[in-house]
Amino acid sequence: MQFKLIINGKTLKGEITLEAVDAAEAEKKFKQYANDNGIDGEWTYDDATKTFTVTE
């Protein structure tokens, strides 16, 4: 399945997509990506659109 991450950071904004088996795997990958890029914020997930959002 394809999942999307919307980044609303203080210095980094944008979207990325990835393939994952389920939402838990996608969340783990997205949070690792955010951590690697210094993004720390409030996370939400919309199951209907398979979209994660992180807002700093």
Rank of each mutant, 00 (worst) to 15 (best):
D47C: 10
D22R: 03
K29N: 05
T55N: 09
G14N: 03
Q32S: 15
G9H: 13
A26S: 02
K13V: 11
I6L: 15
Y33K: 03
I16W: 09
L12D: 07
E27T: 13
G41A: 02
A26M: 02
K28S: 10
L18E: 07
T11I: 09
G41R: 01
E15M: 12
T17E: 09
E56Q: 13
T11E: 04
A23F: 15
D36N: 09
G38D: 05
M1T: 09
A48I: 10
I7F: 15
T55Q: 14
T51I: 07
G9S: 12
T44N: 11
K29I: 07
I7G: 02
D46I: 14
F52D: 00
D22N: 12
A34V: 11
T49V: 09
A48Q: 08
Q32C: 03
D22F: 06
G14I: 10
M1K: 15
K50D: 04
K13E: 06
A24I: 06
N8L: 14
A26H: 00
D46T: 07
T53G: 05
W43C: 02
N8Q: 08
Q2M: 13
V21P: 13
D22M: 05
I39N: 02
W43I: 04
T49Q: 06
K31F: 05
D40E: 04
D36L: 08
D47A: 09
I6A: 04
E42R: 15
K29Y: 11
G41F: 03
I39A: 03
E42V: 14
K13G: 15
Y33M: 05
Q32N: 14
V21W: 07
I6G: 02
T53N: 04
A48M: 09
K31T: 06
E25Q: 09
I16M: 14
I16C: 04
T44W: 14
N37Y: 10
V54P: 00
K13Y: 04
G14L: 14
D40P: 09
T51M: 08
K50I: 05
N35H: 11
I16Q: 08
K10P: 03
N35Y: 13
K4C: 03
E56G: 04
Q32L: 15
K31E: 03
D46P: 00
E42S: 05
I7K: 01
F3V: 01
G9D: 03
N35A: 12
E42T: 13
Q32P: 02
G9F: 14
E56M: 15
N8V: 04
I7C: 03
V21E: 14
T55V: 09
E19Y: 13
T11P: 06
N35L: 14
T53K: 11
V21G: 10
D36V: 15
T51G: 02
A20F: 14
E56V: 05
M1R: 06
L12A: 15
T49W: 05
A20L: 05
F3N: 00
D46E: 11
A26L: 01
E56D: 05
D47H: 11
E15P: 06
Y33F: 07
D36A: 09
F3M: 02
E42M: 07
D40C: 08
E42Q: 12
A26Q: 00
T55F: 13
I39G: 01
G14K: 09
T44I: 08
E19R: 03
T17R: 07
T49G: 11
N37H: 11
D46S: 09
E42D: 14
V54I: 06
K13T: 09
V54W: 02
K4I: 05
